[in-house]
Write a protein that binds this DNA or RNA. Structure first.
Length: 280
DNA sequence: CTGGGCTCCTGTCAGC
DNA sequence: TGCTGACAGGAGCCCA
């Protein structure tokens, strides 16, 4: 479910809710992707710092009691079907079968809802900024920062024979671009998703960098994409699904030229594109 | 090192 | 109505 825009929208709403809150308890239900409960540290009594995002990961630093000494934190991933929900005070409804993590604070309850359980939560006293950076060292650049340039993209793709769509998804060149936004960005850039990544010219890299940034920024502004069940931490849906131009539109006319949008499979994932508007 | 395929898990929907 | 198979927003791992 969640790509960069959905995770960013989640980050903002979660941060608003829990930054500064004191943790009362952390309860785990069914195991998630990485059952790394690490050292089962007692997080109770610690204060949540500013929630940060790296790619599709959310990091929630914790601060110890007395001197406010750093005490690691919680690293979340929403996987394919995960969402974080916030209920202030005692307003939370009864825990459902797919609610697998509960972070109880003095301000309310934060819940991870994740039917498919591809999500993850890692925590521990050593999980500070440095440790998180090491864990996520293989990730590519953030597309909404100045590090995301045509120069970087062109260089990172040099010699790579995978299709550009798959290179975007892989996450080692640029982070946060998932299946929806990869198709959308390539459509906006006019690039055939099957093109070998290493064959992108500099000008086309320029256009792709711009398209990725643009589509992600628009999606964040739209509150994300809700295809089925995405909600931000306040339970609100996104509405970028109304703005997609090719994703999930197989057979429908291309918004630019009217030719039917095509659906192909790349690396076991669906890709949508217009064979007329997008060239090799 | 690269690329391709499989896998984790549950829900939903199309087709017979 | 009920069953079966395909497919779904991610990404780590194994193998050639």
């Amino acid at each position: 479910m969640p790509e960069l825009p959905e995770v960013e929208v989640t980050r903002r709403t979660v941060n608003e809710a829990v930054a500064g809150a004191r943790v009362m308890a952390l309860q785990m239900g069914k195991p998630l992707r990485w059952p790394l409960g690490c050292d089962p540290v007692t997080v109770a009594g610690q204060v949540v710092g500013a929630v940060q995002r790296r790619g599709k990961y959310l990091w929630m630093p914790l601060q110890g009691d007395a001197a406010g000494s750093p005490a690691g934190g919680l690293l979340w991933h929403l996987g394919m079907s995960g969402s974080l929900g916030w209920w202030p005070g005692q307003s939370a409804p009864a825990r459902g079968v797919h609610d697998h993590v509960e972070l109880l604070t003095d301000r309310g309850l934060l819940r991870l809802h994740d039917p498919r359980r591809f999500g993850a939560l890692v925590w521990g006293p050593s999980l500070g900024e440095g440790q998180v950076a090491r864990l996520l060292a293989g990730l590519g650049v953030e597309p909404l920062t100045e590090a995301w340039t045509a120069q970087h993209l062109h260089r990172a793709l040099m010699g790579r024979r995978v299709a550009i769509k798959q290179a975007l998804l892989a996450g080692d060149v640029v982070v946060g671009v998932g299946n929806i936004y990869a198709s959308e960005a390539l459509f906006r850039a006019g690039i055939d998703p099957r093109l070998a990544a290493g064959k992108l010219s500099k000008p086309r890299c320029e256009r792709l960098v711009h398209a990725v940034r643009e589509v992600l920024a628009e999606a964040v502004a739209a509150g994300g994409t809700t295809l089925r069940d995405f909600r931000n931490a306040l339970g609100q849906q996104g509405h970028f699904q109304q703005a997609t131009r090719v994703y999930d539109r197989a057979g429908l006319p291309c918004v630019a030229c009217g030719q039917p949008v095509r659906r192909i499979v790349q690396g076991q994932r669906a890709t949508y594109f217009c064979a007329t508007c997008q060239r090799r």
